[in-house]
Lab assay of single mutants.
Amino acid sequence: DNLVIALHSYEPSHDGDLGFEKGEQLRILEQSGEWWKAQSLTTGQEGFIPFNFVAKA
């Protein structure tokens, strides 16, 4: 599955970004460039995340 774990917390800075906490698990929905579309397994919310803040779970 496309699961990743957050290496750092991220505060959203643009509409459509997904904020998350360090250690949170996310499911990657789309990989494109440096911003990936993801869904939080904690909150169920979707949005874009910086790819370098996460690692394969």
Results as ranks from 00 to 15, higher is better:
D1Q: 10
D1P: 09
D1V: 10
D1C: 15
N2D: 11
N2Y: 14
L3N: 04
L3S: 02
L3G: 02
V4H: 08
V4Q: 05
I5Q: 04
I5K: 03
A6F: 04
A6M: 06
A6T: 07
L7G: 02
L7Y: 04
H8I: 12
H8W: 14
S9V: 05
Y10S: 03
E11K: 14
P12S: 14
S13Q: 15
H14K: 15
D15C: 12
G16T: 09
G16L: 09
D17E: 15
D17Y: 15
L18D: 02
F20E: 01
F20M: 05
E21Q: 13
E21R: 14
K22C: 09
E24A: 05
E24T: 05
Q25P: 11
Q25W: 15
L26T: 01
L26F: 07
R27K: 10
I28R: 00
I28E: 02
I28K: 00
L29F: 06
L29W: 04
E30Y: 10
E30Q: 09
E30K: 07
E30P: 00
E30V: 09
Q31V: 08
Q31W: 12
Q31N: 11
Q31Y: 13
S32T: 13
S32N: 15
G33Q: 03
G33D: 05
G33C: 07
E34G: 09
E34K: 14
W35H: 08
W36S: 02
K37V: 11
K37F: 15
A38Q: 01
Q39K: 11
Q39Y: 09
Q39C: 09
Q39P: 00
Q39N: 02
L41R: 02
L41P: 04
L41D: 03
L41S: 03
T43C: 04
T43I: 01
Q45T: 07
E46R: 08
E46V: 15
G47Q: 00
G47Y: 05
F48A: 05
I49N: 01
P50R: 06
P50Q: 05
P50Y: 09
P50C: 09
F51T: 06
N52V: 06
N52R: 12
F53D: 04
V54A: 02
V54M: 03
V54I: 06
V54K: 00
A55R: 09
K56D: 11
K56L: 14
K56I: 14
K56Y: 15
A57V: 15
A57H: 12
A57C: 14
